[in-house]
Nucleic acid binder design. Structure first.
Length: 285
DNA sequence: ATCGCAGCCTGTACGC
DNA sequence: TGCGTACAGGCTGCGA
């Protein structure tokens, strides 16, 4: 499941493949529901002839700035993959949208579960204004995280998954970050102490940076698994401490990892390192 | 404000 | 081996 590190890996792969400066010659939409916000003909018409000026990432969105000031947004959701195929390559049944470039190559948006979406945005408008801060941005400090968490009485895990609070985290990296910070996923956000928030802030950034360096996390071997632009799997699965490791020993204390359900999401914790109540509450009780 | 749930999808993992 | 079923999860929208 592409989260921030996987999307960042795809963006870097697309840049390395020379997407910046490439002109879109033809647009093929093979599944109309994948296109949001306008009709398929309008989408194809608006993109044809455009040149990708710059490619970047915001949260889990891939953003292509176009030479007419517009922006193409791509969200991979669960199983989306972007692959360059040579001229004349036959489309796969799961290719939802294909952008053919002037040099003949096709950028294939492959998405088995078809949750992924593309849409055109007005370049003048604020880009995705409802999203929270980028956790790897230098301006994202522990104090900023504290300010985002403090107003909420929600449990910390669903809050961290909420892209309006903080952008880019998904199920894998939330579980990994909470384990690293020794915080239980069901702790109420407004009960976290300053020291816990500092640990969480450091953990989120450390986990994400390591995952980006490893080119993302690929779990399993199926067609739904994450792949980069060149078809390569990410190397971060081996570095996971708790995610999908139920029953295996916690790398910190040896206690078996447990799997629970928090806000309808599979959730992995060390029951010893991640106490439900904070240490001071235990002492106070 | 926050929660749980349904829905969108289909490959994969599991039980029998 | 093969069948059926549950599950996985990012995100949205709904009602409680």
């Amino acid at each position: 499941m592409p989260e921030l590190p996987e999307v960042e890996t795809v963006v870097r792969g697309l840049r390395a493949a020379g997407i910046e400066g490439a002109r879109i010659a033809k647009v093929l939409v093979r599944r109309s529901a994948t296109v949001l916000g306008m009709s398929v003909p309008a989408f194809a018409r608006a993109l044809r002839g455009r040149t990708v000026v710059r490619l970047h990432r915001r949260a889990k969105y891939i953003v292509a700035d176009l030479d007419d000031g517009g922006r193409l947004l791509i969200h991979l959701r669960m199983t989306g993959q972007l692959r360059f195929e040579p001229a004349g390559a036959a489309p796969d049944p799961h290719d939802r949208v294909i952008l053919r470039f002037a040099d003949g190559r096709g950028l294939h948006f492959h998405d088995t579960r078809a949750f992924g979406r593309v849409r055109l945005a007005d370049g003048a408008a604020d880009l995705l204004p409802d999203l929270g801060p980028e956790p790897l941005d230098p301006s994202f400090t522990a104090a900023r995280l504290a300010g985002r968490l403090r107003p909420h009485r929600r449990r910390i895990k669903p809050l961290l998954l909420d892209q309006r609070c903080l952008a880019g985290l998904g199920n894998i990296y939330v579980d990994e970050s909470l384990w690293a910070a020794r915080i239980h996923p069901e702790r109420r956000a407004d009960t976290l102490h300053p020291a816990e928030i500092r640990r969480l802030h450091a953990a989120i950034r450390d986990v994400l940076r390591r995952a980006v360096r490893a080119r993302g996390t690929s779990l399993g071997r199926g067609a739904t698994n994450f792949r980069g632009v060149a078809g390569k799997a990410g190397g971060h699965a081996e570095a996971l401490r708790v995610f999908r490791r139920a029953g295996q020993p916690c790398p910190r204390c040896g206690c078996p990892i447990e799997r629970l359900r928090v806000a309808q999401r599979g959730t992995h914790v060390c029951p010893r390192c991640q106490a439900r109540a904070s240490a001071t509450l235990i002492l106070a009780g």
